[in-house]
C-alpha cells in the first residue's frame, strides 16, 4: 500500500513537472536605430500631404502548428486603448499602425486569440510550443510571401511586458506574434501572461 501510494505521488509529480511550460528562449534583436550624424546636405521633401500606403499582410501560415489563418488589419480598441485583436478566434490581427508586410525596419506585429470562452481554441492556441528555427510565412498584397524564422519565445506577465519594444517601428525588421498564456483567472476571465514569439526574415 505504501509503495502504491508513493508511486501515485511520484506519477502525479512527474506529470506536474512535465506540464510546466518549456523555458523561454531568445536571440536578442537589435532595437536601437543608429542616429544619423548631422548631414552636410539637407534632405528636401515635397510639401504635399503624405499618404499611408496599403501594405497589409493577408495570411499567416505556420507549418509547425498546421496553421493557415486569415489576417485582418486592426488598430486600437477605443474603449480600452488595447490592441483590437479580431473577435473571431480563427483570425489573427495585424497592427495596421506599425510596420507592414514589406517593412524594411521595425516590428511587424500580429496578435491572435489563444482561445475564447465563446469559440474555443484560437489560431494561436499552440503558439507557445514554437521552437527556434520554425518557419512563419506572411502573405502580403498580391499573394507575395515573406518567410520568417523563429528566434525567440518569451512569456511575460501582462503587467511587465515591454510592449514598447515589441511595437517599435525602428531597429531590425522582425515579425512579432503575440497571444495570451500562463495561469487563467476564471473570475476575471483573463490570462495572467502574454506569450511573444519573435521571428526574423530567413536568410
Amino acid at each position: 500500500m505504501v509503495a502504491l501510494g508513493v508511486s501515485l505521488v511520484a506519477v502525479s509529480g512527474v506529470v506536474a513537472c512535465q506540464s510546466q511550460p518549456a523555458a523561454d528562449f531568445a536571440t536578442p534583436v537589435a532595437v536601437a536605430p543608429s542616429s544619423a550624424p548631422a548631414p552636410v546636405r539637407v534632405p528636401v521633401s515635397d510639401g504635399s500631404p503624405p499618404t499611408t500606403g496599403a501594405d497589409a499582410p493577408v495570411r499567416l501560415s505556420i507549418p509547425a502548428l498546421r496553421l493557415d489563418a486569415k489576417v485582418a488589419a486592426v488598430g486600437i480598441d477605443e474603449r480600452t486603448g488595447d490592441f483590437a485583436v479580431p473577435p473571431s478566434v480563427d483570425r489573427v490581427g495585424w497592427y495596421r499602425f506599425g510596420p507592414g508586410f514589406s517593412a524594411p525596419a521595425g516590428s511587424i506585429v500580429v496578435a491572435g486569440h489563444v482561445d475564447s470562452a465563446a469559440e474555443g481554441k484560437g489560431a494561436f492556441f499552440r503558439l507557445g510550443s514554437l521552437e527556434a528555427g520554425d518557419v512563419v510565412t506572411l502573405t502580403g498584397p498580391g499573394g507575395k510571401d515573406r518567410a520568417f524564422e523563429v528566434t525567440a519565445r518569451e512569456r511575460y506577465r501582462k503587467t511587465a511586458i515591454p510592449l514598447e519594444k515589441y511595437f517599435a517601428r525602428d531597429g531590425e525588421v522582425r515579425l512579432t506574434l503575440i497571444t495570451c498564456g500562463g495561469p487563467f483567472d476564471a473570475a476575471t476571465k483573463h490570462y495572467r501572461d502574454n506569450v511573444v514569439v519573435t521571428a526574423v526574415p530567413r536568410a
Binding site: D115, E119, K121, F125, A186, K189
Partner: peptide, 9 residues
C-alpha cells in the same frame, strides 16, 4: 495591452 484569450483552455 494585448488581450487575446478569455476561455481558459
Amino acid at each position: 495591452g494585448v488581450p487575446s484569450g478569455n476561455g481558459g483552455q
